[in-house]
């Protein structure tokens, strides 16, 4: 039954919810767009094409893409393991995968520094072999992987569960190898969910701030990603630059939102 009459409580609810969303979600974005483009396009363009900015975009791309690749491989492997196999410790593994959701990014950064920092056993061993992990790209990739870890697993898992494994078993009886079964049957059927998970991971990875702030050392022009660069500009009272870089990230976020809306596996996640 649709109620055509719109009652007073319903109006009350509408007003409260819309006002809440207006002030918390919509207006902040409107204001940053306004402040960014208030003096036209050219200052924005100039701010985004400085060599520091370009470098920050490059670092962000390298770190985010590496972390997403790692998390995708890990995510698919972990999902297959959790859905298709029964083994001791499976529940623990399942729970541990959710751990990164609850751990503060700063704590992630600190934990990684304590293991892979230059003065630690592991860190100095790598250092002697010419690889720096902390205050360098590898540490930033690991930190980003940590915070985005559950996304691919949780996107792919339910779909993997839903499709079952009859087809895989049929292929196995026909002599298909494990690799063939994976590339010809499993992968095509989880394609949508995988793309969804990848988009979510990418959005999370591009924007990671706290963990990367700790492990990168925030070396301008060296290990600074765009989110770190935003803070740097802001602290140095370069508002035009800070707003321009922020807006570029807002646009990426909106693109990710739209993409995830189309990729969201229907009925699978909920």
């Amino acid at each position: 039954m649709t109620r055509n009459r719109t009652s007073a409580p319903r109006w009350g609810l509408r007003v409260v919810v819309l006002a809440y969303l207006m002030f918390l979600l919509v207006l902040p974005v409107v204001v940053i767009l306004y402040r960014t483009f208030q003096h036209g396009l050219s200052p924005v363009f100039d701010a985004l094409t400085t060599s520091d900015a370009q470098h920050a975009y490059k670092i962000t791309a390298i770190v985010a893409v590496s972390a997403v690749v790692l998390n995708t491989v890990f995510g698919v492997a972990a999902a297959i393991l959790l859905v298709r196999h029964r083994f001791p410790g499976r529940r623990i593994l399942d729970a541990v995968i959710d751990l990164p959701i609850a751990v503060s990014p700063v704590v992630v950064g600190l934990a990684l520094t304590l293991v892979y920092g230059r003065n630690t056993a592991v860190g100095s061993w790598f250092g002697r072999h010419g690889i720096n992990i902390i205050f360098s790209l590898p540490g930033m990739v690991i930190a980003t992987s940590f915070v985005a870890l559950p996304l691919v697993v949780r996107a792919v898992g339910p779909v993997l569960e839903e499709i079952g494994e009859e087809q895989e078993q049929a292929a196995a009886t026909l002599g298909a190898s494990a690799f063939q079964r994976f590339t010809r049957i499993t992968l095509p059927s989880i394609r949508g969910a995988l793309a969804y998970g990848v988009v979510l991971s990418l959005a999370r990875s591009l924007g990671e701030f706290g963990a990367v702030a700790v492990v990168s050392g925030r070396l301008l022009g060296k290990t600074e990603t765009v989110p770190l660069y935003v803070l740097d500009l802001y602290n140095n009272f370069n508002q035009t630059g800070a707003y321009a870089a922020s807006t570029s990230l807002v646009l990426v976020a909106v693109a990710a939102l739209v993409a995830s809306r189309f990729l969201r596996p229907r009925g699978a996640m909920t």
């Binding site: 979600l25 902040p28 940053i32 999370r204 924007g207 989110p227 935003v230 807002v250 939102l257």
Partner: peptide, 14 residues
């Protein structure tokens, strides 16, 4: 979902 997609520092700036 915007708060999930938006980098936290950008949220801070906005």
């Amino acid at each position: 979902d915007l708060p999930f997609a938006l980098p936290t520092i950008v949220a801070g700036v906005t």
